[in-house]
Design a protein around this nucleic acid. Structure first.
Lengths: 336, 336
DNA sequence: ATGAAAGCGCTAACAT
DNA sequence: ATGTTAGCGCTTTCAT
């Protein structure tokens, strides 16, 4: 099979290469008759425009990259929806990459996308990564740090205000009458987690009457929620918290399952608040009250920020965007 | 900022462009001294190799695409892990794309990746897509259909034997004593769903004593499980099934939650089997017995198949690979 | 409206 | 071991 390029199309349609190119890029400038001949030739030959040649000539691509630690995490996946939609509107395609939380893979994708000549990168990462993004930026590929506020003023970022999220969760528990509040989460070395605790702590202090117990855990998954739930149900009622702030929904779901299974009533005995508002939160045994970060809007805003950084949109005063989360109240905190 | 290419590096290192290229592609052929000068120049200038030029010259890229309807679906996400690892071993990078189950987006990604000149594509889709893959193939981009057996012999595919999965599920229910079995799933227009029903039906017929009720539903999500669970708990006990085969785990989880919430015991009154063995199945209220398709292995096998199709690996006799699922037995079907 | 031609950055074949 | 050079496929002036 001989490779078919613009040249073969031109030959078959009996026009020049330039006309074929015009047809491809500025269809209006080509006469109807030749357009038809060219179109037929393209279909007959199965011509596919070679992006390498195009990009080389144009000097730039029309793609952006979105790198995440875990595509299957509903938080990142939902953002991806917004990212793709907005990028498409701007005429850009999105290359998704899954780093698996592995630095080496993260690095290799960063390098790959730089070589690909993407217009910009959206990067979510648990690692310290600003240095590498700064380096990429000096080499010509700008980026937006997603999910975490950047330390450097030069690094655009878009993030959730986790302090305010933690505050919302704890204040809600206090408002429905909880006085012994447990924070279930960790590791505190992760900024987002520490921020949520900080916010919760602020709310508790502000109340003047409530107390905060911190249950530090390693992994934020359902089975750990089970474990902690078992421990709590085993305590005499007067030593149990009456409200739990689980630092994510998976923990919250696990906690509720085990508490209820052991005869502890949710929310009557213990009210529970989760974080992230994943789909399962709404559909769990006892629908879970949860702190909801913006989702699709967040992806849209991320792309918009990247576009301004790239220079395709006017520069805003501020390139460190912080979004405020909401609280979605469900049965797990609805008493009476 | 002047764009820096191989030419600028060569000038600064005081060598020829060819030597820089050699350094990049065949480092051993360059003397230590010049290698050092080149390396320094690269770092000093922040040189990034332009892939468009490279690819244009080489006539091919070293990437493959993996297109899925929903990246956040744990089934595809887990496969992606295997795909990426195996591709990396073969020196290939993976571009992930999320079609959102939307045909237009699917098409635009197919076209994009063809233009990008990927070596091949792994495509999972709920739509009829073989025609388009065939067209892409004739134009030079081969593909492997993932998750569904291809109709055309010319289209390589890798899939799960859903008939056998459905059979496993139903036979297990029968073996633990169920006689009135309900199949909860739909739409039957989806091949995978129809196959699972087929398998279940085979097992029931084979038993000679069991009966099968089909509850046809539209969406395979938790909330639909709730709805069906409510309906079933409302029936007089003698008209309820004593075993349920839920066509996926989300349905199964929803069913179990509502049944148990309404005082129907699982598995004593009704045993429940799910499908897919997602993470939540193991950690649900009553750990859910589930049909488990191969996961990471599946991704590895998919890449291997694509490599053979591309021609980087020896051609096997068969390009329609079918994997057999397992059954993972948990509490939801463990009586006594 | 159409055609001719230059050149984007890179690699490898060939020459030294 | 290193340099020289042709040309990959395309887009876009610039003519006509």
């Amino acid at each position: 099979m001989p490779r078919v390029g613009i040249r073969e199309v031109a030959a078959l349609a009996d026009v020049s290469m330039g006309t074929v190119s015009h047809f491809l890029n500025h269809p209006t400038r080509v006469s109807a008759e030749k357009a038809k001949r060219i179109q037929e030739a393209i279909e007959k030959l199965g011509f596919v425009r070679n992006n390498a040649g195009r990009q080389l000539r144009l000097g730039r691509s029309s793609t952006v990259a979105y790198i995440v630690p875990d595509v299957s995490n509903p938080f990142f996946a939902t953002i991806a929806e917004g990212v793709e939609r907005r990028a498409a509107q701007a005429g850009l395609s999105v290359f998704l990459a899954n780093s698996g939380g592995d630095r080496a893979r993260e690095d290799s994708y960063l390098a790959l996308f730089e070589e690909q000549g993407v217009r910009g990168m959206l990067v979510a990462s648990h690692d310290p990564i600003e240095d590498r993004l700064a380096a990429a930026r000096t080499r010509g590929t700008p980026s937006v740090l997603v999910g975490r506020r950047a330390n450097s003023a030069a690094q655009p970022s878009i993030s959730i205000d986790d302090v305010s999220g933690g505050y919302l969760a704890a204040r809600h528990l206090i408002e429905i009458g909880c006085r012994r509040i447990a924070f279930v989460g960790g590791p505190l070395g992760i900024q987002q987690i520490a921020d949520r605790l900080q916010g919760a702590s602020n709310a508790v202090r502000e109340s003047g009457t409530a107390m905060l117990e911190i249950i530090d855990i390693e992994h934020r998954i359902i089975s750990v929620g089970h474990k902690v739930g078992a421990e709590l149900s085993g305590r005499p009622a007067e030593h149990r918290p009456d409200g739990i702030f689980a630092v994510n929904d998976l923990l919250g779901i696990g906690l509720v399952q085990t508490l209820v299974g052991n005869g502890v009533r949710v929310p009557e005995d213990i009210a529970v608040v989760g974080y992230d508002d994943i789909e399962y939160a709404e559909n769990s045994l006892v629908p879970l009250t949860s702190v909801r970060p913006p989702h699709e809007d967040f992806g849209i805003a991320a792309v918009d920020l990247l576009l301004t950084v790239i220079g395709d949109a006017p520069l805003p005063a501020e390139t460190q965007l912080v979004f405020a989360p909401d609280l979605v109240v469900r049965r797990s905190t609805t008493r009476g």
